[in-house]
């Protein structure tokens, strides 16, 4: 287990982490999710020992490592921009940590080959990082981090520098890898979809604080704060409350708690239909519905309808 307790970190006048405490269970894949500047990368670097906290304690597997250099923490770290050793081949990159640990040559060779097999880079041993694509470089970096059999794998926006398609592939691949290797993993990301897709626990961070920690579904369905609600998905404001657009129900006639609205525009997005509305206070909101429902209501611009929330929402 990784435990952070009461972490504070300043960069000059900037208060990057404010009394952050979190526990990350063994074998989990936890995402630190938040906008840029929320402190998520700083927290990861503090866990790694790449930054020293001003206050607070970091413990890995029950040992206080706060004053330990990164070398002694038993971690693997993957950087957003790969941090590939440019002057070394793929083989030497992956073997680096093992050579530092002075493992026997034969053991290093077989371990490197095994890892490259796992990350799908078998046959690339002799290449240099400059001869690899971005996705390949990041998989090499992962193999390099895993080679030393870390207790904890820390990933700092590992897919942030890749294009959308590669990012999605690597995401699925990482999930599968984690299911096989089971190493405790912390992933930093600003992409809520990525966090929901990969992680089994998400910690949402904002302005140097952790807003909420939990399973992706719990965070989505029961957000503790407005920030968590709006960061994890689209929102609409109905009667002064935040709701998910797909929880809005449209009807022709008045119903309990329903609010009268005017349809401004109807956007057909394949299966789903977005209905842009304006309420009595002249505020805009959009509801998400299906083709069938939209057809049943015969929705069109200029129409007057009623809308209500299907599920209890977060008070704004």
């Amino acid at each position: 287990m990784i435990a952070a307790h009461g972490i504070h970190k300043h960069y000059g006048d900037f208060h990057a982490l404010r009394d952050v405490s979190i526990e990350i269970p063994d074998g989990s894949l936890t995402a630190l999710l938040g906008p840029s500047g929320s402190g998520k990368s700083t927290l990861l670097r503090v866990i790694a020992g790449l930054e020293a906290p001003d206050e607070g304690v970091i413990a890995i597997a029950g040992n206080d490592v706060t004053r330990l250099a990164p070398q002694g923490r038993g971690i693997g770290f993957v950087f957003q921009h790969y941090a590939a050793f440019k002057h070394m081949t793929v083989r030497d990159n992956v073997a680096f940590g093992l050579k530092i640990r002075k493992r026997p040559k034969a053991e290093i060779a077989s371990r490197v080959d095994e890892l490259l097999e796992i990350v799908g880079l078998a046959g690339y041993q002799g290449r240099y990082p400059s001869q690899l694509s971005g996705g390949q470089r990041q998989r090499m970096a992962l193999a390099r981090a895993l080679a030393v059999e870390p207790r904890v794998l820390l990933l700092d926006e590992p897919f942030g520098a890749l294009d959308a398609k590669v990012r999605e592939d690597l995401r699925k691949w990482l999930r599968r890898l984690h299911d096989e290797v089971h190493v405790t993993t912390v992933l930093v990301t600003h992409d809520q979809e990525e966090a929901m897709d990969v992680a089994d626990r998400i910690a949402v961070m904002n302005a140097g604080r952790i807003e909420q920690v939990g399973a992706p579904r719990d965070l989505y369905d029961a957000p503790a704060t407005e920030f968590v609600m709006s960061f994890l998905g689209p929102t609409a404001t109905l009667g002064g409350r935040l709701v998910r657009p797909h929880d809005l129900v449209l009807s022709r006639g008045p119903a309990e708690d329903a609010v009268p609205v005017t349809v401004e525009r109807v956007v057909h997005l394949g299966f789903e239909v977005r209905v842009e509305l304006r309420d009595g206070d002249d505020a805009q909101l959009s509801a998400q519905t299906t083709r069938a429902e939209a057809a049943a209501l015969d929705v069109e611009a200029g129409q007057s309808l009623f809308v209500r929330a299907e599920r209890p929402a977060v008070a704004a």
Binding site: K9, H10, Y11, G49, L50, E51, A52, R67, A69, P70
Partner: peptide
């Protein structure tokens, strides 16, 4: 030695 905002590496 711990000090404010030091860089570890």
């Amino acid at each position: 030695a711990r000090r404010r905002s030091r860089r570890a590496v």
